[in-house]
């Protein structure tokens, strides 16, 4: 019984969006509807401007608010692995989870496509899916929200359930540098060029992710909501060493 978690080191992240691209390819996402993206944020006035970026996957919370609001119990917490998944056979697309999620990582793609022209009309699907992409991943499990999204349902990051769930039992960390484990590593972690992402078992005291969280003061986002995300951010505050930033005033 692992509890998978992710650690993202903001000091290493270059905001290159390789994770976003990998996720889009792995999970057949529609353009612009990525389960994983990098948020950019700009604050300050010239010349004291600072831009920061934050990769944002689904946090697979320990106590997810999306699960408690779902009227049809379509979204659920998998007790084996701690994934938060959606059963597309049960989802009615009411989007209550989208409203309830404090992190905004749920996607309902039946509305106007953010990127035009609409690729759904270029590769239409005849089996009730959003589209029929020219390249498709082999995995398809609607009861866990894996595969090409059907119409009228909400989708979200699965922590690459189709890969991680096949990992050998008892393994502490899924590291792309270990050859025998690399096939089980989530797409975004595997491709990260500066190796800013780490994936491992939070319940295993010997795992490297636990060590990172302890050594570098791993922080969970919006802890006041009580959702207890399983994704931790590391920040040594490298940005604060830049003098321009220290003089910046909050004008938010």
């Amino acid at each position: 019984m692992a509890k998978w978690g992710m650690v993202i080191d903001l000091d290493k992240c270059t905001g290159c969006q390789a994770c976003t691209t990998a996720c889009a390819m792995e999970n057949n996402r529609l353009p612009g509807e990525n389960w994983q993206d990098v948020l950019y944020y700009v604050e300050g006035k010239f010349p004291n401007v600072s831009m920061k970026w934050f990769p944002r996957p689904c946090f697979h919370c320990e106590n997810p608010s999306c699960v408690s609001v779902c009227p049809t119990k379509a979204t659920y917490k998998d007790p084996d692995g701690g994934f938060v998944l959606i059963d597309w056979n049960k989802c009615i697309g009411c989007k209550y989870c989208q409203v309830a999620c404090p992190y905004g990582v749920r996607f309902y793609t039946d509305e106007r496509a953010p990127i035009q022209p609409d690729i759904r009309t270029v590769f239409p699907s005849d089996e009730g899916r959003q589209w029929n992409p020219p390249y498709k991943g082999p995995q398809d499990d609607p009861s866990r929200g894996i595969g090409i999204q059907p119409h009228g349902v909400v989708s979200k990051c699965t922590f690459c359930y189709h890969k991680v769930s096949k990992a050998p039992k008892g393994v502490a960390d899924l590291d792309e540098d270990i050859p025998e484990l690399k096939e089980y590593v989530p797409g975004c972690v595997r491709v990260c060029p500066p190796k800013a992402r780490f994936f491992g078992d939070l319940d295993n005291p010997a795992s490297y992710v636990n060590k990172l969280i302890a050594d570098k003061r791993g922080t969970r986002l919006k802890d006041e909501t009580g959702n207890k995300p399983q994704v931790y951010y590391l920040s040594g505050g490298a940005a604060s060493a830049i003098p321009g930033l220290r003089s910046m005033k909050d004008e938010g």
Binding site: E43, K52, F54, P102, T219, G237, S240, M248, D250, G252
Partner: peptide
């Protein structure tokens, strides 16, 4: 709007507070 608020919150949590 939610993403924007989240980014602002993260910015202050991780970077701005230390300056």
């Amino acid at each position: 709007e939610k993403s924007r608020r989240l980014a602002r919150e993260m910015f202050h949590q991780f970077f701005a507070a230390q300056s």
